[in-house]
Design a protein around this nucleic acid. Structure first.
Lengths: 145, 145
DNA sequence: CTTAAGTAAATGCAGTTGCATCTACATGGG
DNA sequence: CCCATGTAGATGCAACTGCATTTACTTAAG
């Protein structure tokens, strides 16, 4: 077994710390505006994209890369806030179908500008568009391991 | 306010998901070997680097980018496992100095190969060294926002 | 010396996550 | 139909995190 070479370690450490910093900035910005946390945004967006027909929790879990119990509880909290509806599934008594309520749509839309502002600020101010494309390309190569 | 352009969004989404996937791989590998979580590794390493003279919790918190209470509790857990010593500070009765115990050093060393193997696997298998250097460079540009 | 303001670290409490398990329903074989 | 196996989702419990506050000490100013 050989150990990672220096560029590998540099990738890892910068990845972890950039992620931590940006995530924190986004969360803080949302809190400032008394909006829900980022995890809600992702879920609300996926549910919204699913439209009228809704989405099943097990699909959501795959798209959000969350564990099953994490998805279950996230949905529980979002539901308690009245941002989504749970419907029964015709041909599978175990399942449910999630759709957004109007309030859910509104909140998601209210979150976006806040979220977007942080991304624009912290990414576009530090990278040219060419660099951003390159960065995204390299990250994508890593993702599919 | 203008919204992020597509490369910005691509950077963000790939950053978040790569981070999540790699982090999970590392944590799982450590668990497999019944080793402590990654957060312990970072702390143990910083304490080890501080050597004989030790490190103060407030310094650790800055290096690890952790909140004060997070650091306090992380140290508490690591101490309970017997991996570190807390000493009094000569000229400041509020403070403490943290040093590693031999067991702490051993555990840190035992974690490294497991940790390193995941990094090597998941990064070096997907990026050439040139690409890794470039990726680290771009991430570093983002970090200093 | 006394008091006010500041810093190091700990902690109570509520909310979240991880792990394992459980409940409810589905599906395929006898 | 009955049972074994599988899948969707929920949940009890312990550990962890975030937030606000507290405790203990230090420092500077009068």
């Amino acid at each position: 077994m050989t150990y990672p070479n220096p560029p590998t370690i540099a990738v890892w450490t910068s990845l972890v710390s950039v992620n931590r910093v940006l995530l924190e900035e986004v969360e803080n910005a949302l809190k400032e505006e008394s909006l829900p946390p980022l995890s809600w945004y992702d879920a609300l967006l996926e549910i919204e994209k699913a439209g009228e027909s809704g989405i099943r929790p097990y699909e959501l879990k795959e798209r959000l890369l969350l564990p099953q119990y994490g998805t279950s509880r996230l949905l529980e909290r979002i539901a308690k806030a009245g941002l989504l509806n749970r419907g029964d599934v015709e041909d599978d008594g175990r399942g449910q179908v999630i759709t957004l309520t109007p309030k859910g749509r509104d909140i998601r839309q209210a979150m976006w500008p806040v979220y977007a502002a942080v991304l624009t600020q912290s990414i576009e101010q530090n990278l040219s568009q060419t660099e951003a494309v390159e960065l995204a390309r390299l990250l994508e190569k890593l993702r599919h391991s």
